[in-house]
Design a protein around this nucleic acid. Structure first.
Lengths: 202, 202
DNA sequence: GTCTATAATGAGATAGAC
DNA sequence: GTCTATCTCATTATAGAC
């Protein structure tokens, strides 16, 4: 069948993400990727200039997917503020447990971006995106519950991303579910100290 | 000059660590490592069975170095508890700023260990070591100030390692020194809520 | 547009002279 | 023990037939 360059690029980026999540970035050679996509090796270079050009698209692909996933979350359930915050953190861990290879793959891509000149700026873009998403969630949660944040939300979002990154590494290393819980409690408590009722919803 | 196998292994592990910190794990080929060590390629395989066998030694080398470095820290200065905790976190960030490539390299090694069957268990060993070191520091700080921890110190140590990992990723991505500070404050505050005076030092 | 075949390079590992 | 030279394999990328 005949595919447009755009279709081929999309298919390859998806295949690459699959391979990266399953086998790691180092194993995501062009050969492994085209095998996953069911294409001939030459088709890769017809669609992409080089492997790093594909990796840029992989990162952007994931960021788009996350925006959609978080967008669906913005319709927050009825719950008290503490439950909402703690539940949000728990939801991230749930996602991590469901797709650990994917989270590890994204961190591998981040580190690779930091070493590879051709990917300069991609890690920054990635993390600016993460923080923007969390900022949106923190604002939505506060509004939902008539609370306001006591320091710039961007700072708190950065703290949340820091914590989720750390939790990701820890869980990937030992898969210790029980050990995650008290950490989530500590993080949630730290966030709660940075919020107070607006007074508009008495 | 003639070197014993042991001397050669040590020299190669040190050279490997240098290359990994400077250029990344992916660039730490056997060729790059022997070049750094000023050896011939064949000498590598005289000392080591394979590349992964060397990587095991690299991880162990770093862990030993950290034990020594932390050992020197255990003689804690006279200071109030909050200052000590906050200062300890700040010290880690200082180390990160001084040797960012090294910290990135260690995370790359961790992820590589998780993907490479021949390195199975190394990541666990690495993180058990990190947590043990932090546990020692937390206990020493509490004792120094007549405080006791309100939950198992191992849990708190795990939380600290989680946070430092997250901070490492964040700082490696954007090198934003200013943005680190409020996060350290949040983390330190979270820890302080988990300690109280023993009453033995009133 | 798609494929097979192949170039060009760099990797880990080894043989064998000294 | 140490070296040069080489093997073998996997990689990215390209040429050129269809």
């Amino acid at each position: 069948m005949r595919l447009s360059v755009e279709q081929r690029r999309t298919a390859l980026a998806h295949a690459a993400l699959t391979v990266i999540a399953r086998d790691g970035l180092a194993a995501a050679t062009t050969r492994a990727i085209v095998a996953e996509a069911g294409m001939a090796l030459a088709s890769f270079h017809y669609a992409y200039e080089s492997r790093v050009e594909l990796l840029r698209d992989v990162i952007r692909l994931v960021l788009e997917g996350e925006r959609d996933a978080v967008g669906a979350l913005l319709d927050l359930p009825e719950a008290d503020f503490a439950t909402l915050i703690r539940g949000g953190l728990g939801a991230y861990v749930g996602n991590l447990r469901e797709a650990p290879g994917r989270e590890q793959g994204m961190l591998e891509l981040t580190f690779h971006s930091l070493r590879e000149p051709a990917l300069e700026g991609m890690a920054l873009e990635q993390y600016a995106h993460y923080r923007a998403l969390v900022t949106g969630l923190l604002l939505a949660a506060a509004e939902r519950c008539g609370m306001r944040w006591l320091q710039p939300v961007e700072q708190l979002a950065r703290f949340v991303v820091t914590c989720t990154d750390g939790l990701t590494v820890a869980w990937l290393v030992d898969h210790d579910d029980a050990a995650i819980e008290p950490q989530l409690d500590l993080i949630a408590a730290a966030l709660l100290t940075q919020a107070q009722p607006t007074g508009e919803h008495p």
